[in-house]
Write a protein that binds this DNA or RNA. Sequence first.
DNA 1: AGAAATATGAAATTTGCGTTTGAATTACAA
DNA 2: TTGTAATTCAAACGCAAATTTCATATTTCT
Lengths: 215, 215
Amino acid sequence: MNRTDGTATSERVLQAAYELFSAKGFHATTTQDICSLAQANIAAVNYYYGSKENLYLEVWRHAAEQTQHHWEECIHEDSPPEEQLRQFIAFRLEAALSDDERGWFTQLIHREMSNPGPLTEELGQRYLFPRVLWFQELVRALVGDKVSERQMRLAGFCIHSPLMHLHEMRMRPDRRPPPPDGGPLADPEALADTVYTFALAGLRELRRLHEEPNR
Amino acid sequence: MNRTDGTATSERVLQAAYELFSAKGFHATTTQDICSLAQANIAAVNYYYGSKENLYLEVWRHAAEQTQHHWEECIHEDSPPEEQLRQFIAFRLEAALSDDERGWFTQLIHREMSNPGPLTEELGQRYLFPRVLWFQELVRALVGDKVSERQMRLAGFCIHSPLMHLHEMRMRPDRRPPPPDGGPLADPEALADTVYTFALAGLRELRRLHEEPNR
DNA sequence: AGAAATATGAAATTTGCGTTTGAATTACAA
DNA sequence: TTGTAATTCAAACGCAAATTTCATATTTCT
């Protein structure tokens, strides 16, 4: 085609790669798949991105950037901690449940983590680690100063894990007899409420235990 | 070698496959890898098990059997529900953290789930689904009759997820700057305590909300 | 318009992996 | 000892997927 279409081709390839990598993982996705979906020739991947692996990296960069914007829209650093926790839960839930690019990134992360490749470490350092730190600070603010560092971390783990686990469920082609109510993914509102309730209840209990350790 | 060594070869192959499949997943493990680790010829996999895929199935059968024994040792159906929950948490924690065959199965499950293959559905139906049902009944016993089915499920999700998420962490070759205390995996006792505390606190809060829904 | 750069397409090449083959070796029983 | 079945081994095959090649088409620039 023409040149303007040309740059559009590289875009289409990136989009297709994004979608397929998050849906099926790096290895299960062939360059053929990508180029078919992008309606481009098989050579397009290597022409525009050098290699399949490099395209994968580019997808990560693109996805992380988008997610950053979304993060800044959803989470306001000047809200009180409880509110930020709610915002955070909503943010992750939306990321886990939506079927568009916001959701794709979550799946991408999860696939990379549970099936580590040569890039895992770098990607984790660059895109994931900062979020973990942010979250720990939030938990510290919520749990108060009395609780030990270790205890605080464990609490953070318990709060965070439902959100992580959700990604996992989202990703499975679950053809088990679906529960009559559609499982936890069916009603995001109720799920967010429950996660939030459990988090606050756990934190409160923890504070209580640390204030009256005898009993 | 001799014939007795011969049957030992098939054992070694199974063991090696178990270890590698859980460490790297089905696709990332080559028959070459397996046979090298088992100190067997490349043809051994197909000679003894017909195909790589069938060997994978055999590994699952073997692993599930072992895990069943372990389960029966750890969890006593005649204990009160709170006690069973504790036992369950301890069981899953041990499975997630140990470096031997008990831990391997956990990883195997998790890999299969996050990177579904043609066998995923069948394996899930056969080996995983029954456990989910068991757990739901436990949560029902803990949460009482007042709470709705959906709410009960969501609670179960929140309780179960730290254990699932743990598997996930276990699996990553995590070379992030390890937290000074070694992260949640360093002190299984404390982790078990915290998970248990959060679970009970959440359940209590839920019951409370359902008894005095106004406020 | 014509030359240079850029983009596309189809086919060829390469590589890695699962599987097969057939010969060589070993175990065991008659 | 000799025949038979089981096991091991190295090499070869077949296939699928990534990458390269090179010819052709299109755009840009002068």
